[in-house]
Nucleic acid binder design. Structure first.
Length: 195
DNA sequence: AGCACGATGCTCT
DNA sequence: GAGCATCGTGCTT
């Protein structure tokens, strides 16, 4: 019996962002980097929903930077921040409705030694850390993650039970006003090891 | 053209 | 736990 790997289809992402953020926990993020396959289980996500959400980049409306979020679900939205870091998001909801899920952490399960080397021995627990580990930058912006392309997609992974998922407010929002600051739109695995 | 700041990470204390 | 590196983006002038 061979196991059939299923790529998460567009219909998975074309749904309410909170459901997608929750269900991406445990999914397999697959990256082909210089011909090598790097795989990590997603262990932390955050939802950014619509122009009303003042923590969401879409609050600025449709710009060159935020355009991917206004596009079809299942595409990547990669942006640069703090002068150093690339952040990986997956676009959700119907086209024209700007929303996305930030992938904040992974647990390496394939090609771990390469990711470890790229991180110089440090962990991959953090949104800027996982993109560095997987070599994800601007080139990976606005890619369709629902097809087996040459560089990046997301597969069905393991099911993480409710009792192992913590829900809480998003982090790093600094000056974002309420109620957005306290929205419980962050999902993370309680125990860092989910295998 | 200039400016403030950020969905962070690293180092030092 | 505080300070800082570092630069693209959006907003102001």
């Amino acid at each position: 019996m061979i196991s059939v790997v299923k790529i998460l289809p567009r219909s998975f992402y074309n749904r309410p962002t909170l459901a997608v953020a929750r269900e991406l926990i445990g999914a397999r993020l697959v990256r082909i980097f210089h011909g090598k396959k790097l795989v990590g289980l997603i262990t932390e996500t955050e939802a950014y929903i619509s122009q009303n959400d003042l923590a969401c980049h879409a609050k600025a409306g449709l710009t060159a930077r935020t355009a991917p979020m206004f596009g079809p679900a299942g595409h990547s939205y990669v942006y640069f921040t703090y002068g150093n870091h690339w952040m990986l998001n997956v676009v959700t909801e119907k086209e024209g409705f700007p929303a996305a899920v930030l992938i904040r952490a992974i647990q390496p399960i394939e090609g771990a030694e390469i990711m470890l080397e790229r991180r110089m021995g440090r962990d991959t627990y953090g949104p800027g850390k996982l993109t560095q580990a997987m070599g994800i930058t601007k080139s990976e912006n606005n890619l369709d993650l629902t097809i087996r392309n040459s560089s990046l997609w997301i597969e069905e992974g393991i099911s993480v039970p409710k009792k192992n998922v913590t829900i809480g407010p998003r982090v790093g929002l600094n000056k974002t006003p309420e109620p957005w600051l306290s929205k419980p739109w962050r999902f993370l695995v309680k125990d860092w090891k989910i295998l």
